[in-house]
Amino acid sequence: MKSNRSYRMKARAEAAEQTRLDILAATAEFAVVKRLVDISLGEVATAAGVSVQTVLRKFGSRAGLIEAAIGRVALEVDKERPVPVGDTAAALEVVVDEYERRGDSLILLLAQENYDPQVHRITERDRRMHRTWVETVFAPCLPSSAEARDELVDLLEIATDILTWRQLRRCRALDRPTATRRMRTLISALLESSPGSRS
């Protein structure tokens, strides 16, 4: 009797978690093609196969839903973006992989940051994450001087930034290998010309 009740409770908990994940996935899918401010609870609920009341019960508010959905994507990015310390070629492939998967939706997000405070918080968090990634990946190549180090990290951030990828892949319409090669050329030039670099 007790084992049956435990089984039912476990099944309910798993179903509730699956519902939560379905709602987050639906929200993330809309965020790829729409501004966050234009995503309605109704369309998310319909796409997830639940009611608006269920969405609100799970996340408390529309803002809570958006925050949770973006947070889930950020966790996925963290898992998908390993840190190959010192291996600049592998690092570039990792970051380009991410941009190829999510670049257009991230560009759409950036376009909203000046008028949506919630989006601004998200993009600022993403920038901090990217800088930390750059500092870690390129640590063996960075100068010992704090000023020179900050300058090189700034420039390496730009060389590996999503807007650099966008310029090459979307504005210039280059194929991925060519765009990646040009980003690699930027990185190599920075590492070779930086005074005090340990490359």
Score class of each variant (00 low, 15 high):
Thr185Arg: 00
Pro140Val: 06
Ala47Thr: 01
Ser51Gly: 08
Pro177Tyr: 02
Glu80Asp: 07
Pro117Cys: 02
Ile107Gly: 04
Glu135Val: 00
Leu56Asp: 09
Glu93Pro: 00
Ala173Leu: 03
Ala89Val: 13
Gly196Thr: 04
Leu174Trp: 06
His120Met: 10
Asp126Asn: 09
Ala90Trp: 12
Ala48Asn: 02
Met183Glu: 12
Gln118Lys: 02
Ala16Ser: 15
Leu168Trp: 06
Val137His: 14
Leu24His: 02
Gly103Lys: 00
Ile187Asp: 13
Arg125Cys: 02
Gln53Leu: 03
His130Ser: 07
Glu43Tyr: 01
Arg131Asp: 11
Glu17Asp: 14
Arg166Cys: 04
Ser61Arg: 01
Lys34Ile: 00
Glu100Ser: 05
Glu113Ser: 08
Leu156Lys: 07
Met183Phe: 08
Glu147Asp: 15
Ala173Met: 04
Val153Ile: 13
Leu92Pro: 08
Val50Ile: 01
Pro117Gln: 01
Gly71Asn: 05
Pro117Thr: 00
Leu56Glu: 13
Thr178Lys: 09
Arg181Cys: 10
Glu135Arg: 12
Ser197Arg: 04
Asp97Val: 00
Ala91Glu: 06
Arg102Thr: 04
Glu124Met: 05
Arg72Cys: 02
Val37Arg: 14
Arg128Thr: 10
Gln167Lys: 06
Glu29Gly: 01
Glu151Leu: 11
Cys141Gln: 15
Val134Asp: 09
Ala148Arg: 14
Glu17Thr: 11
Val85Gln: 14
Glu14Cys: 09
Asp116Cys: 05
Arg20Gln: 12
Ser145Pro: 07
Ile158Leu: 10
Ser144Met: 13
Arg20Gly: 07
Ala179Ile: 01
Glu80Pro: 00
Glu157His: 01
His130Asp: 05
Lys34Gln: 15
Leu56Asn: 13
Ala90Ser: 15
Ala13Thr: 14
Ser51Gln: 08
Thr160Cys: 12
Ala89Cys: 07
Pro140Met: 09
Lys58Ser: 13
Asp97Ile: 00
Met1Arg: 15
Pro177Asp: 02
Val119Gly: 06
Val94Arg: 11
Ala13Pro: 08
Val119Lys: 05
Ile187Gln: 11
Asp78Asn: 08
Arg198Val: 07
Ala16Asp: 15
Leu191Trp: 06
Val95Thr: 12
Phe59Glu: 07
Lys34Gly: 03
Thr88Tyr: 15
Asp150Ser: 15
Gly196Pro: 04
Ala47Lys: 05
Arg5Ile: 15
Ile39Leu: 04
Val96Cys: 10
Val153Glu: 12
Glu135Lys: 09
Phe59Ser: 07
Arg5Ser: 15
Lys58Leu: 10
Thr27Gly: 01
Arg172Ile: 00
Gly42Lys: 03
Glu76Gly: 03
Pro177Leu: 01
Ala31Ile: 00
Arg172Tyr: 11
Arg57Val: 08
Lys58Phe: 09
Ile158Thr: 10
Leu155Lys: 12
Leu92Asn: 11
Arg72Pro: 01
Arg57Ser: 14
Gln18Cys: 05
Leu142Val: 10
Arg176Gln: 11
Ala146Gly: 14
Ala28Ile: 00
Leu168Tyr: 13
Glu147Ala: 15
